[in-house]
Design a protein around this nucleic acid. Structure first.
Lengths: 150, 150
DNA sequence: CTTATATCATATTAAATCAGTCGGGATTTG
DNA sequence: CAAATCCCGACTGATTTAATATGATATAAG
């Protein structure tokens, strides 16, 4: 019931890109350093994100990556689906081409996994990089407020 | 983001036990046959469930397993926790002793995993073996009703 | 008392996945 | 040209998964 580092690193990297929008392309090296991730490993993950159009790349010196579209239009679910595959606690309730067993119609167990899947999808598709940025800004404001009162 | 067969087989087996309550102990062999699971493998899983008190065993010929308590008091989350460990999409938000990273307080990514975890827990702890039995009964009624009208 | 039926326990294993690492190309800037 | 950077495929050690194998222990039935 765990995400692999692929999904977690991927979200971190995408959020990092969102935080550095408007500063030109961001290199993997700088993302890897800030987020504490192996650069070569990150390379593999970002390769998938690029093929899915979630990021755009700029080659050569001073190159790097940019978000593929506005942060408000990139859902966490999009990132997870690219890096971890279709969201599903079991193959028989996979978002795409569920590997149906013969009993699917009346299987009581299956309906549990459907509910779990839907609740996960609901969370992951309700959060965008933009909403994360807002969240981070709010937190920063709160913590500086806190600083004044201490 | 997937459950392993441990969790899925475990829920199936527990539901099978619930369906055969009042018929004396149910043998692993019969559960394994009905549910299409390797008996020896199931043995390992049930061993964990027994240690956790979710099932009781009766040794010897005509022996088998019984639910450890009323089906209304066995949540799917209980079963999953025994067989898959604490519910958590990432270690930093594990239900028990979360493996906290230094940035936990202000990590925006972490709050996503918290929300995912909470939504999964909400689903898994809201379903009991009893509610599954009711669900199955209702379905049966519906399908027989359908039979009359066709 | 013996035998068949079960649970209980431990060890082994083949395959897959994870989380990287390594080495070398291709492309662009200065 | 040199340095920075993305791009690509192959390799690897560790862990997990999903079993299988073997044998011991307990009990009901005959």
């Amino acid at each position: 019931m765990k995400l692999s580092t692929k999904g977690r690193y991927g979200v971190k990297a995408m959020f990092d890109l969102a935080q550095h929008m408007g500063e030109g392309p961001t290199s993997l090296k700088s993302i890897a350093e800030r987020q504490g991730i192996s650069e070569h490993y990150l390379e593999q993950l970002v390769s998938g994100l690029r093929k899915a159009g979630l990021v755009k790349s700029v080659r050569g010196a001073q190159g790097g990556y940019l978000l593929g579209r506005e942060p408000g239009k990139i859902k966490i679910g999009d990132i997870i689906r690219v890096l971890e595959g279709p969201i599903a606690p079991a193959d028989c309730v996979s978002e795409e081409n569920p590997d149906c067993c013969a009993k699917a119609d009346y299987c009581v167990t299956r309906t549990i996994w459907e509910k779990v899947r839907d609740s996960i999808v609901e969370v992951l598709d309700s959060i965008t990089l933009e909403s994360m940025l807002e969240d981070a800004k709010k937190r920063e404001a709160d913590s500086s407020l806190y600083m004044y009162y201490i």
